[in-house]
Amino acid sequence: MSRKIERLINLTIALLATKRYLTKGEIFRSVDGYDGSAETMERMFERDKDDLRNLGVIIEVGSFDPVFQDEAGYRIKPEGYSLNLGEISGVEIALLSLAAEAWRGAALDDAAHSALTKLHSMGVESDLDSLPAISPRLNPTHSDFQVIALAISKREVISFSYLSAVMVAQMRTIEPYAIATRNSHWYLAGRDLEKREMRTFRLDRIDGEISISHGGQGFEIPEGFDVFGSLESDETVNIATLDVRKGKAHLLRIIADSCVDKGEWEQITVRYFDYQQFVDQILWHGADVLVIEPTSLRNQVIAGLEEIVRLHA
């Protein structure tokens, strides 16, 4: 195993150091670790190239003379190989460190840690003292989180089994656009290939493994796509008018757009996006909230109350 690793490192060094393309012949003659028959070396080299590419190393293929198309040559351009974040300060390194630390114990812990190692190898001292003392943490989520992250960056289609509201597991196949987290839940948004529509999924409702369908056609992610923005857009917004008891229902008050004093009660207007969720939220507040408008919402709340009475009478 060591010999293989040595050879990969030596190959990387040689291809990085060269100012011109190196031919296979030159590589076999000069880079330590290539021996055996021509065929063996050829096979070794093909595998090594794949391995380095899998590590994210970009190997350029070119020739000395484009007109005569002689033997292909290889090199690794230093500007593609190394981390280049432009001018970077100690405060910025500290901010990035906090960002990486947020993953401690969560899905991308390893990736965040290796990113941190690279950032700390830039020779810029992290200026953590200039930041306020905060230590935000990301919540753990589905064990296949990395698969999603990778699929988004490589534009690959993923499939998984998803628990519907009636607890039936359904296979979903989507083009993943983005992941986001809020209120300690993780969300995945993308285009559902079967339903031909944008859909958002809560990761804790994914049942079992997530698989990448390789060789799928690449897709475009809309510029500036925003998970919560797509859930809560002007097209999905509804407005309700509610009477709320004074000093109560502060969960609804925080999201209220307006508030009018009516003595014992106050009348607020609230924007909502998910119908059933909003009905549930109103009923949570019991006798402290009364729906005034719209009628459909009011009827839905009344229907819920009637069902509660029927079940418990």
Binding site: A17, S82, L98, A100, A102, A115, Q146, S153
Partner: peptide, 29 residues
């Protein structure tokens, strides 16, 4: 010299930092 610069970030590392940074932005006073 040839290896003394850190390697560029891969996509998984970048996604980890991007989500972490957004969390940091919203956690700053």
């Amino acid at each position: 010299q040839t290896l003394s610069n850190p390697r560029s970030l891969n996509s998984e590392e970048t996604i980890a930092l991007l989500l972490g940074l957004d969390l940091v932005i919203q956690s700053l006073p």
